[in-house]
Each structure stands twice: as C-alpha cells, then as structure tokens.
Design a protein around this nucleic acid. Structure first.
Length: 255
DNA sequence: ATGGCTTCATAGTGAAGA
C-alpha cells in the first residue's frame, strides 16, 4: 500500500501533473492541499477517468483539500469538531480500517499577526480531535502541509529563520505535541540525504540552490509505523513546467 | 532588500502564500 500527500497550489493549474503523477507512482491514496477549487468546479470526471475516487472540500481562491483513492470511502468529515472555521483545511475518511486525515495547516504569515494566533488555535483544536480519533482508529495517518519545519535540520538556513513563522518554538511545540499523542514522523524511520526538503520558494532560484524547508509530513500511528517500508520525497515534479512549490511525499507499507 | 515568484482575483495603493 502506498499513501501520498501533495500541496498542488491550484488543482486547476496542476491537474495534468497530478494525473501524470498518479499514473507513474500508483498511490492507493493521494491527499491534496491548496486545491483552490470550489466543489462544483472540482475535476471529478478527470480523476475518475484516472482510476481514482475523489472526495473534496474546497473554496474559492484559497485553501481546499481533497483525497483521491483507488478504493471508495464511506462518509467523510471536512471540519474539526467543535472548532468553527470558514476555511477548508481538513478532510478525514476511512479506507478499509485505515483512517486518513488530510490537513492544510494555516501558514500563519508572521508570528505577530492575527493569522499566527489562528494557526496556533487551529493546531490546538487538531490535537484535541486527534486524541479521540486515535482511540477510534488505531491505524491512522495524519498527512499534509503542516507549515511547520519541526527542527533546524529541516531548514536550509536555520539562523535566518530562527524564531520566524514555520520555525518558531510555539509551532514546533505544537508539532511535538502531535507526536506525543502516539504518532511517528515517517520521514525519520529511514535514512535520507542531509538537506532534504519538501518546499522551495519560487523566487531566487531557491529550488536550484536547494534553499528549502521540510514542512509537508506524513505522521503514522504506531500500528502503521511498524509496517512502513519507505518514505520518499519525490522531487521529480519540480522539474515540470509550472511546478507546484511543494513536492509530493509518500510512504509505502507492507500491507 | 518587506523585494524576489505564482496564483486567483479584479482592474486596487492587489492579497496571500512560505
């Protein structure tokens, strides 16, 4: 089984790249963030033609998440319970006995902005919800764009980014708090080259200079981490014309 | 260096992303 995540930064622009990537990599599940597509405009037929069943929760211009899966899910939820949020950032569904939770964590803009407080509140609500979800679903995958670089080694220039949004202590503590619930960062189950990242700024030739951050993650409950056989950051789509600024991340399981 | 690039949006002194 293979499960993947990709912040596509507009599904409308990236649809041909997504279809192509599905064909090449054959994930069982692909979670998308920043679809920026209202539900009535979601390219359902193109996804079905590619052999995947989509579920989606989108809005105009910003945010938006989707899960594409070879198997159909039953019902899904598109909100964090007891958390009022007009932004479409979460989608949870169950495939077989595996709970998939696709998230697009708020960016936060800068640590002194109101958006940063929204980000921290959002992460607190996510944590509370995950406590219940992990009891209900021992096999759980929490994946997506976390907009947090968990450690200095996940940042191309830790000094430059010290204390800044994506790297601040409060964000990193929120990330650590998710791990403490009983989740494992699949990236660290395996060896990777130093300076492995999932996002690079469009500007300043950042990708060519590998000035990136590791902010897209796949967290696994212990029941699943025992069976995880690989975690791959696929930089290949960044070579496409009009690439997303994020690359896909995927995990494989021996189940 | 509050820039630089890309997207969606509108026709803004753009907004937001990370």
């Amino acid at each position: 089984m293979r499960v993947a995540t990709w912040n596509v930064n507009s599904l409308k622009v990236r649809l041909p790249q997504v279809i192509n990537w599905l064909e090449i990599n054959q994930p069982d599940v692909l979670c998308l963030q920043e679809t920026k597509t209202q539900d009535e405009n979601f390219p359902k037929d193109a996804i079905l033609d590619a052999g995947y069943h989509p579920i989606y929760s989108g809005q105009k211009t910003y945010n938006g998440v989707a899960i594409l899966s070879k198997r159909m899910s039953g019902s899904f939820v598109a909100t964090i319970p007891n958390f009022i949020d007009s932004q479409k950032r979460v989608l949870a569904a169950t495939y077989e006995d595996i709970r998939i939770i696709c998230i697009y964590v708020p960016n936060g803009q800068s640590i002194d902005s109101e958006k940063f407080q929204y980000k921290l509140g959002w992460l607190t609500a996510l944590n509370k919800w995950l406590q219940d979800e992990l009891i209900k679903y021992p096999k759980l995958i929490l994946l997506g764009d976390f907009n947090i670089a968990p450690e200095d080694r996940d940042v191309h220039d830790p000094k430059l980014w010290e204390g800044k949004v994506l790297c601040s202590t409060s964000e990193r503590e929120a990330f650590m708090a998710l791990l403490k619930l009983g989740l494992v960062d699949s990236f660290h189950l395996f060896d990777h080259p130093d300076r492995s990242y999932t996002w690079w700024d469009y500007r300043m030739m950042a990708f060519q200079r590998n000035m990136g951050m590791r902010i897209d993650h796949i967290l696994l409950s212990h029941k699943l981490s025992d069976n995880c056989t690989n975690c791959i950051i696929d930089k290949e789509p960044r070579n496409n014309e009009r690439p997303s600024d994020h690359t896909p991340v995927m995990v494989d399981f021996s189940i």
